[in-house]
Amino acid sequence: MTNAPQQNHISVQQQDFDLAAEYQALTANNQSDGAVVHFVGLVRDNNLGRQVQALELEHYPAMTSKALSELVDEARQRWDLGRVRLIHRVGKLGLGEQIVFVGVTSKHRGSAFAACEFLMDQLKTRAPFWKKEHTQQGEHWIEARESDRVKAGDW
């Protein structure tokens, strides 16, 4: 059952997600996995010294789900995982709002920690999302970070 499609949940959406509901979806009727690791990315108020007021997230709709599914498939090839849930929001997001959720279950913690970090690192360089920053000085597109590219390449 490990690779059954219903073990994956991938969503690109405007609406917020509920952490308690996500945890429930990862763990309900799942007695074979002893580890749950999740990551949540938030909109923070400062980027490279600029005071951020909001973020706007654009994506390439036809490609995003496909790209995220491929990342989950790769993670499953590397680690023995139970459930994987990946949510990425798009549209305009205010300070402190949730942007992204990655949740992974596995029998033991090692695989869950590694797969969660792997998915975030790969998502940062391979999934077609772009952030535009709104600041008091105006709006501009965020530039990709070399450190993200290096980190994704380390896996």
């Binding site: 942007i99 992204v100 998502l123 940062k124 391979r126 999934a127 077609p128 772009w130 597109w141």
Partner: peptide, 12 residues
């Protein structure tokens, strides 16, 4: 074919 050009991605 559908071809798409875009800047390096900045999601997450």
């Amino acid at each position: 074919d559908e071809v798409a050009f875009f800047p390096p991605v900045t999601g997450g």
